[in-house]
Amino acid sequence: MDEIIVIALSALTSIAILMLTSLGLAVIFGLMRIVNMAHGEFLMIGAFTTTVAVRAAGFPIWLAILCAPLVCALVGVFVELAFIRPLYRRRLIDTLLVTSGLSLILYQIAINVFGTSPPGIGTPGGFVEIGSYTVSHYSLFLPAVTVLITVLLYALFKSTRYGLLARAASDNPDMASVLGVEVRRVNLSTFVLGCALAGLGGGLISPMVAVSPGVGQSYVGQAFMTVVTGGPAFLLGTLSASTLLGGIANIVSQLFTTLWGLTALLVTAIVLVRLLPGGLSANWSRQL
């Protein structure tokens, strides 16, 4: 019984991590259709911001985590203006190549600044005991905060002026502009929001993983597969895909090993692409 609870909790944490590392991409790629290959580096920047804020500046962990989206948002503004904006009307492959280049540049800068395996920060909070097992508070906190962020984002896109304009600008930019939407400004905000979300994701997972310059690249592949299998409903679809893929990957890893868990994630995602090319949410009546 205890074992089942522990397995379930662990799966929940994995799902949360997958969702947190995919959310920024869900906004930038899922909603805006910008192929941002540098998504992983935004996760990495977020994770490093938190680590540095805790270790060097002595910030409390929660404040350090909140710094991560701010730093990423600033980087995001620069990236949008310098690289993404000139490419809005170009072929998607061009965006893909430029953001890949950006990813490499940011990766190398991180290596130059932090080295290949910088020291990390410990998991904050204590532990709970479930039978003979211990589970950290933080790993329980992650799913809760993931749900909170998703709910807030849903409300933002569903009920605010900005959210409506952002969705309209992505759905049909010409028509939105004719109705009075300043599409460029809205797109900048949405891109920056996506970067900030990636930063927040990176900051939140930083106590749970080994933070290195390559940390983003180990998540970006999964993040893309999650958003692609999620389909057009960029928030709830991504959440469903995270649940399915993260759940399967985690349970298989616990039963066998991490290797088989990742393999299961990959195989499930590929099978889903074949069976449902439009993604899990292709036929939903809510595209959010």
């Binding site: 409506l164 969705r167 309209a168 759905d171």
Partner: peptide, 20 residues
């Protein structure tokens, strides 16, 4: 050129909200 992923109400709202 209806916003296909927005509801009917939201379609009407886009211009109204954009122009405040």
């Amino acid at each position: 050129e209806i916003f296909s992923k927005l509801t009917v109400r939201e379609n009407l709202l886009v211009g109204v909200r954009a122009r405040k």
